[in-house]
């Protein structure tokens, strides 16, 4: 009830306002990533962009799929796929917290009438080899944003660091519109006829229901495992091939550079994301045994870390360590 129900922004207006706000502050507006991800952090716009020294600021909406969180559309507060608005500020400006508070004002929240607290909440993703320090931002007792200073990503120490702001759009919209169920959020309102509204439930309920059924009941466990293995193998194979595109003495610098630049590490990363999603799906399906679990997480982490380390080399931000196999070969041929 930050504003009058009638004047509160609709779900889509909320997105437009936040994107407009961050665009005015120099962010590149990106589109949601079109591979399934569990969080906006996993989009290459965050995962890869935070690596290396190059400044970059971006904002984008990211529908985030967490199969185990699905509730068949029955629970008013839980979703299989929720919508994040992700902002990356690299490096973070000194007034990053003030900018964030300003963005809340921009969506119609009069901070003088509300209670806002930054409470410690550090973030860590073992699967991504990433962690950061930060807060959950509490607005009248509701967590509306995760605010993280990234310290490490893909096992790589970050310098400069990035600030990551992740707004939970459903929560924020429900707060602004003062509704008790996500499905009652007004997604869109006809500008010509204010009585014609499209609720969130109309847009998304079927998806929540059907994907809950798929994720919990019908996803074919064997095939899903097989998909996971295939994606993993392809990603690992690409990473291996990248090792061999690294400097060899015969190539001149220009050719070497070109071979490096055209290598599809972005493709490898998509494959890694696929693995992560399939793992989550198998987990929701109850198909991952205790003994397998740790091992699979470690395998996906190896892919994510592998991509991050390779990406840093590809961009020329880290010296390429000659791959061990290459070294051996050279020794062998010399002898």
């Amino acid at each position: 009830m930050a504003t009058d129900k009638q004047t509160a922004p609709t779900f889509q207006e909320l997105i437009l306002k936040l994107e407009g706000f961050w665009a005015e502050r120099g962010c590149v507006l990106q589109q949601p990533y079109d591979v399934e991800v569990g969080a906006g952090t996993m989009s290459p716009e965050t995962f890869l962009r935070v690596l290396g020294p190059k400044p970059y600021s971006t904002a984008y909406v990211q529908p985030s799929r967490r199969p185990a969180d699905g509730r068949y559309g029955d629970n008013p507060n839980r979703l299989f796929k929720h919508t994040q608005l992700q902002v990356i500020l690299k490096p973070p400006p000194e007034n990053v917290q003030e900018l964030y508070l300003e963005s809340l004002r921009a969506v119609g929240i009069d901070l003088r009438q509300h209670d806002i607290k930054f409470e410690e909440d550090n973030w860590e993703s073992p699967t991504l080899g990433a962690w950061g320090i930060g807060w959950q931002v509490m607005l009248d007792g509701l967590e509306v944003t995760q605010f993280t200073y990234f310290q490490q990503c893909g096992g790589v120490d970050l310098d400069p660091i990035s600030a990551e702001l992740t707004y939970g759009l459903e929560r924020l919209a429900a707060f602004l519109q003062d509704v008790d169920s996500i499905y009652e959020i007004v997604w869109a309102r006809d500008p010509h006829d204010a009585t014609r509204v499209t609720p969130y439930g109309d847009v998304r309920h079927a998806e929540e229901l059907q994907f809950s059924v798929y994720n919990f009941e019908m996803a074919d466990v064997e095939k899903t495992w097989e998909h996971l293995r295939l994606y993993e193998a392809e990603c690992a194979s690409l990473l291996k091939q990248f090792e061999f595109t690294r400097p060899s003495k015969e190539q001149d610098a220009g050719a070497r550079h070109e071979a490096m630049q055209r290598f599809p590490l972005l493709g490898a990363f998509d494959l890694c994301l696929k693995c992560s999603h399939l793992f989550n799906l198998l987990d929701a399906r109850g198909a991952i045994s205790v003994t397998e679990r740790v091992g699979v997480i470690a395998r996906i982490r190896a892919l994510a870390v592998g991509v991050a380390k390779a990406y840093v080399v590809q961009q020329g931000w880290a010296a390429a360590e000659p791959a061990k196999e290459v070294k051996k070969k050279e020794k062998g041929s010399a002898g």
């Binding site: 930050a2 507060n77 009438q113 509300h114 209670d115 009248d140 007792g141 707060f175 003062d178 008790d180």
Partner: peptide, 19 residues
């Protein structure tokens, strides 16, 4: 003064209890 903060906190707690 307007009870907005109380209202917001009650809303959150209601959702938590409902959960």
């Amino acid at each position: 003064p307007q009870g907005l903060i109380r209202h917001g906190n009650e809303r959150v707690l209601r959702a938590r209890f409902n959960d």
